[in-house]
Design a protein around this nucleic acid. Structure first.
Lengths: 178, 178
DNA sequence: AAATTTGTAAAATAAAAAGTTTATAAATTG
DNA sequence: CAATTTATAAACTTTTTATTTTACAAATTT
């Protein structure tokens, strides 16, 4: 029995979706997030949790979790359509913007956590330097760690600027869209 | 019992290492890779698998696996020291370079896989278009997917250029090191 | 207001990833 | 060249993460 063209097209679409899912690890999210992204993308129209559950063969609860994650990452949004009671979700259609959303979400999270850490370390080291009677060797060690903290801070500052460089679209002035 | 300064310094160093480990997920590698990176970094001198096993409390086999991964990612290298029989590993000391190495390794891998995929899809679609007797609607669908493949290709082309932009250091001309 | 639908916590289970143990080959030493 | 050390594959175990099931509250319909 020869495969019908329509079947074949469907299979090709599925392969696209699977490839997106497969790549998603690199973007910092799970394959399932990628799969759902791909499914809604290929569908060209917003979808409900039930639709997604149907398409993926996963539970509706899981779809709820995945979709929430996607909204957090700014790659999906809830849309309203009059007469439709269920929640509808659409996804970012632009590849470049999807890259940027995931890149910036991930790094912003990391940068945020580091700000807190940085401050704590600098304070602990400063306190240690001031309160105790230290021999030269120990004092030296503390100064090295303080310098390390400074370098760390500068690097995370750079990362923050890098995130801005992407988020603002400035990157496209230097690596132009194709 | 009051904590001795030396103990405290050691504890602070450990906190640095733990923070590196913690962040590493964002860089696309496991926490253990981050931990080992941090330990060698803080040590300022190359270390052996036995050293690392000792420091992490993990098996030597695991250290072997981790170190290999790090070498693959270009963030560690085997170094020779005369008179030392065991393998010695040193790590990249520059934060910026470490970022770039991990960023480029991860994306290059993804880009590579996509090149193969892309070609396959384009060929399948082209074949489908040529061999079968298709109605207008189906033909339309295929053309849409071919366009999709083209956009996909362009986007991955852009990613490849982005990787180059980082790897060449060009990025620092626009987001300067701090 | 009773019955149904919808979305999502919380707890339980399944699947995947990380890590260890055992075994072995290659290199080194006495 | 036998004995020891080193690194790592292969098989197994543990831990973590992903997913499902159960349960329930809020919204909607009848």
């Amino acid at each position: 029995m020869v495969e019908q063209p329509l079947e074949k097209i469907k299979r090709i679409e599925e392969q696209f979706v699977e490839k997106i899912a497969d790549n998603m690890q690199t973007y910092g999210v799970t394959a399932t997030v990628g799969r759902v992204l791909g499914i809604i993308y290929m569908n060209r129209k917003p979808m409900t949790l039930d639709n997604l559950s149907e398409e993926t063969g996963m539970s509706k609860t899981r779809m709820s979790q995945v979709v929430r994650e996607m909204v957090d990452f700014n790659i999906a949004e809830k849309v309203f359509e009059k007469g439709v009671r269920k929640d509808l979700y659409s996804v970012e259609q632009d590849y470049y913007q999807t890259f940027i959303s995931l890149f910036t979400s991930n790094w912003r999270k990391a940068i945020q956590k580091n700000k807190i850490f940085e401050k704590k370390m600098a304070a602990e080291l400063q306190a240690l330097l001031e309160t105790e009677a230290l021999d030269k060797d120990l004092e030296q060690k503390i100064h090295i760690l303080l310098k390390e903290t400074k370098e760390w801070h500068d690097y995370y500052q750079w990362l923050a600027e890098l995130v801005e460089f992407f988020d603002s679209g400035e990157i496209f002035n230097h690596v132009p869209k194709r």
